[in-house]
C-alpha cells in the first residue's frame, strides 16, 4: 500500500484514524507492517502490500 492510503482508510469498528507501523517497504509502498487504531488499539496486518481491514471476527478465512 502507498502511504497516501492512510488519508482515506479508518478502523472498520469505530472509524477512528489508523497509525502506520511499517516493517518492510520498497521504493513506493509499504509491503509488510500493521495499521493500528488510534482509539481502540486494534491491529490490522499489512501483508504483501495489502492491508487487511476486515474486523477481527471476519478475518478467519
Amino acid at each position: 500500500m502507498q502511504e497516501s492510503l492512510l488519508d482515506i482508510v479508518c478502523c472498520p469498528l469505530d472509524k477512528s484514524d489508523l497509525e502506520l507501523e511499517a516493517i518492510r517497504r520498497d521504493d513506493d509502498e509499504v509491503l509488510e507492517g500493521r495499521l493500528v487504531c488510534t482509539e481502540c488499539s486494534e491491529e490490522y496486518p499489512i501483508e504483501d502490500g495489502i492491508p487487511n481491514l476486515l474486523p477481527p471476527d471476519m478475518r478467519e478465512a
Binding site: 492510503l5 482515506i8 479508518c10 495489502i50 492491508p51 487487511n52
Partner: peptide, 16 residues
C-alpha cells in the same frame, strides 16, 4: 491501484 481487504465500504473515511 491500491488494494484493501475489507467488508464493502466499512474501512473507509466518511465523504471520501
Amino acid at each position: 491501484l491500491d488494494v484493501v481487504r475489507g467488508d464493502c465500504t466499512r474501512p473507509f473515511d466518511a465523504e471520501t
